[in-house]
Design a protein around this nucleic acid. Sequence first.
DNA 1: ACGCATCGTCGATACGCATCGACAAATCAA
DNA 2: TTGATTTGTCGATGCGTATCGACGATGCGT
Lengths: 340, 340
Amino acid sequence: MPTSKDVAQAAGVAQSTVSYVLSGKRPISEKTRKKVEAAIDQLTYQPNAGARALASRKTRVIGLVIPFIPELHMASIMEFVSVIASTARQYDHDILLVTEDEGAAGLQRVVGQQICDGLILMQVEGEDERLPVARSLKVPVVLIGIPRDPSGLVCIDADFEMAGEQCVRDLAAAGHTEISVIDWQSEVVDRHMNYIDRFMHGTDTAAAELGVKVLHLPGGADHESLARTVDKGLAETTGVPAFIAPEGTVQDILSRVLSSRGLTPGVDVSVIGSASPTLAALQPIPLSTIDLRPGEVSRRAVKIMCQLLDADTQGPHESLELVPTIITHRASTLRPPTGT
Amino acid sequence: MPTSKDVAQAAGVAQSTVSYVLSGKRPISEKTRKKVEAAIDQLTYQPNAGARALASRKTRVIGLVIPFIPELHMASIMEFVSVIASTARQYDHDILLVTEDEGAAGLQRVVGQQICDGLILMQVEGEDERLPVARSLKVPVVLIGIPRDPSGLVCIDADFEMAGEQCVRDLAAAGHTEISVIDWQSEVVDRHMNYIDRFMHGTDTAAAELGVKVLHLPGGADHESLARTVDKGLAETTGVPAFIAPEGTVQDILSRVLSSRGLTPGVDVSVIGSASPTLAALQPIPLSTIDLRPGEVSRRAVKIMCQLLDADTQGPHESLELVPTIITHRASTLRPPTGT
DNA sequence: ACGCATCGTCGATACGCATCGACAAATCAA
DNA sequence: TTGATTTGTCGATGCGTATCGACGATGCGT
């Protein structure tokens, strides 16, 4: 592997000059720059990351703490991971994976060893054992998710409250007066995922305002328990039933249960799920969705992180950003009565 | 951040002694070791990764090149990623994410900058633009997937041929003589994923041997095109139809199509899908599955990589490892006739 | 008791880059 | 013309660790 010294020699300049050509932190004459760049190309020189990190005290690596809760919809997590990695590259950073099974100690490790300059935590819970650690770390930390006490932390998430409101408003506008909201699976609820409460609060707010009834039902991961849930929802509904299923795994099962009950979404029942536009369109009956915008949340998380890294002002930052959700009507919900 | 020099001072020894305590590469007296370890604890010292990499020429980081093909089943990719990361930690290594959108240049970058000691490539295609690069790199590369020409490469994958055989044998044993194999979606097939051919070859081999008929049908990502495919399969079958759907996204849709055709898996149709045991059990009708063992493949990939890194013998290694697949009977396939 | 191998520790150096101070040359103001 | 600045480059130093050679201390056999 060639070093900057080799480049310097090939270009007939000092090593420091090569460094300045690369960083632009001092003026360099056009002539010298050309020479150096030619030498770099010719040797296919690439700066050594370790040496760079050692000298500059910046690794240009961001640690990404990924959850691995089997109950969660893996596909959506992958969407976060993928977008975060791509976006990081746009800011000339790389992503180091930190798995949950190391727990909070993992955070201390990667920061302590100075493997990365900052951390992004996914799937932050209401009360998260990682929060005290996150607060005490001397590197920027961005949370995806809002803990119960976000003080001293930088958080970003989809606006679940808005999402809940949008769903209820949309169904109410379609003429529904009784709406069943299927909760996340109990395994997830028990982890005190704060976004669940926010979503439910949104549905209730909108319901109270519009004078419609919202029924909260427990979610479930298996066909049978979810079938019971659905039947309960159906039993308590007098008009055309409406379901909101904000979780990916739940909605897959839901649609099957409904069809086994002889109900067709968009005709004698309304269903709103959560999925990307692409996925929604692939369903047998195009699914009306509430888009929680994982891609946008990911992009902004990385952006915030990189801003914090650039600013590198030490003060304990604190901020909270909510990404607006988007509701999209498709064939799985009743059409609003036209006219009037 | 404390350095090994600080530790040395606190323990009253030389910096090099601290280093030897940590690495164990030279004998250290019990007394000195205790002193040093106490100082390490007290200062909560952690070695600086950059400096370590610079001096030792080892980063203890493995680059993981993840695909991001929307057509692929994201959930299963996440399974790979997650297990790879956890396993790497067991070997005291970390995982750096390299996204596909950098293409082959991304590989050169992370290796050239010496951000990582080796690469694991996921989702390797039959003809992959990354292969020539992989061969030319001077670091170990492990491929998950088998390219058409695996010479000079270290590959590991599930034994798709065995999987195809197992599926056909299993259905034949249950009395089926006509079996429909639903291919991967055309977007995936067009990428020349070698595993598809291997799977199909396995089904054909077994079919020829057992004297049963295998019908290959195109997959599809949407309900409508897959429905056509299924109908074609049904039309060409005289007895009880049997379907093999080795792809996650396809099988989800398949089950709905079948139920909309009035067919019940395990009763008047057999279905074999691919899923982890946990997922399979959650289906409305527990799904008979061919387990392609992503977790095991991931673990072995990391293990191979770490062995290559330890051995650090330079010679161009070459190997090919196939992980046996596991077929599991559940309720979605007919029971084999008992007795005789 | 003597040479010799082993043990345990130290000091010095290299790893590749960023950065600071110094300095010569070029530019400018008066 | 001269002093003050700016521009462009160089040399030296430090970042924190691993590792090599050296060296005193210890244990061994004879």
